[in-house]
Nucleic acid binder design. Sequence first.
RNA 1: GGCCCGUUGGUCAAGCGGUCAAGACGGCGGCCUCUCACGCCGCAAACAGGAGUUCGAUUCUCCUACGGGUCACCA
Length: 549
Amino acid sequence: MTASAKLAELLFPDITKTLEDYETIYPPRVLPKGAKVTRIAPSPTGFMHLGNLFGAMVDERLAHQSGGVFYLRIEDTDQKRKVDGAVELIDEVFKRFGLEFDEGFTLQGDKGAYGPYVQQQRGEIYRCAAKALVAKGMAYPCFCTEEEIADLRGKQTSQGANPGYYGSWALCRNLSFEDVEARVKAGQPFVLRLRSNGNAEHTIKVRDLVKGELEMPENETDVVILKSDGIPTYHFAHVVDDHFMRTTHVVRGEEWLSTFPIHLQLFDAMGWQPPQFIHTAHMMKLDNGNKRKLSKRKDPEFGMEYYDREGFPVEAIIEYLMTVLNSNYEEWRLKNPEASYRDFKFKAEKMSSSGALFDLDKLTDISKNIVARMTADEVYEKVLVWAEKYDPSFYLLLSADPSYAKAILSIGRGGKKPRKDLWLWSKVKDYMDFFYDELFFPAQTYPTHISESDVKKILEQYAGMYNENDDQNLWFDKLKLLASDFGFAAETKEYKNNPTDYKGHVGDIAMILRVAVTGKMVSPDTYAVIQVLGKERVLHRIQVAAQSL
RNA sequence: GGCCCGUUGGUCAAGCGGUCAAGACGGCGGCCUCUCACGCCGCAAACAGGAGUUCGAUUCUCCUACGGGUCACCA
């Protein structure tokens, strides 16, 4: 038995399976040619952000567009950051955005043949892989304490050396078997480190599907692959999992680019073929004139909860992300306004290699367009779902009379040029509140260039001539009549030509009516509004308004 | 600081040696038999800087500046 084999047995006496065993347990997938296997691997930290969704969409499109597999893995190797309810949140967010996994973790248990899909449950697999590395002499236990490491770093910086555990700085690299055995038997804690054969003076060519071929220094650090609790670090878990889960394409944030050489080295040490990589640029935010990565702490718009609470339509967020993800998406959308985003041919090569500023204006615009295309029924359903969660009293109002609510939401909807004033479910209430007597606030002010007595008389007179069966033309003709009676121009153009001859024009009459009936100077088409309000409400509001003057 | 990556209008971006340098959002102005919204028309607005290579550089190379990322028993 070689020394390293002995060491492997000493360190991992409980591991009896071999790598070959796992090769047969997790055989290469049988898939159509070109099919991609992707995964999204969030950490259960209780916080889901735009980046998670961003990456998930790339993964999902890549997999499903190619007839491959898209799966969910939970990366919970960091005990300290684990939060209760986090996996439920992950599940909820992906479901809400309509992302469907072919396999992986689910709240009901794992689905698929390449599990477990929760890293915490894969300990034996990692340890087996680690054992193999030790047996090959490519990994070793390190007993250095935190203080010793800090000490090392201090020495390195004072000497101008690069900090890190590598080369001759790697104190535990060449411990004798006897030494290790004694320490292990004494119960001294240790981490397992890769015995790097790299040299940072040398460069390697690495390939990224969006950034192309890059030149990076070789990894020379003896990185930790198993922490002292026996749980792998990200680096090692990634390599082992993506190998045995047979991932073909790894999509991850570009913060991983600098550790890319470590991963490649690890794949090589294991004797495995690495998958393809896509390092995605971060979503940025402008802060004091500088761009910076969207941050969990400072930017509420980074968290998915924000979008839910504000009531952004999920379709709008997906649409926005797609425009950011593939530069030719908008162009495609113009030609295919009705198509599902899934019909778009997504290409990794079309992804931007630099970070885009998060653009709320753009999102708003997209959202307006999407909501404008929805039917009143759809809008109603979505507002209802939002209100149930965030505005119970409004929910009650809406659900008490669905057909009234839908009539309101139908105003200006469905034609060639639909209104686009709705884009957030949380703003729907402001938009339609005056339709409900419970939320209606009678106006305090009318346009100032019209005398109060005129307003009062116009309202009284209008009440007498109002007929709920008038069509829009007749309705407007009556307003013109009123206009003439009170010294206002019946035609706007006539007023514009001779402004001094009139107190105002027919638009002012319409405005008086609008204000009386809606309490606002701004509203959708007044005729449509009074039709929906109905005779009783209209007359009552006009009377009350006239009396208050 | 070392190492990587990036840099076209305010923003997102087409472009891949020869273009009057697309388009979208935003802004501004105008039009549109009731406000708003919609729609339509128009305007302003960009190749970070400097060297090369070339007949010719936004496009290729190098340098500088600026921005970003990363240097953990976190992912």
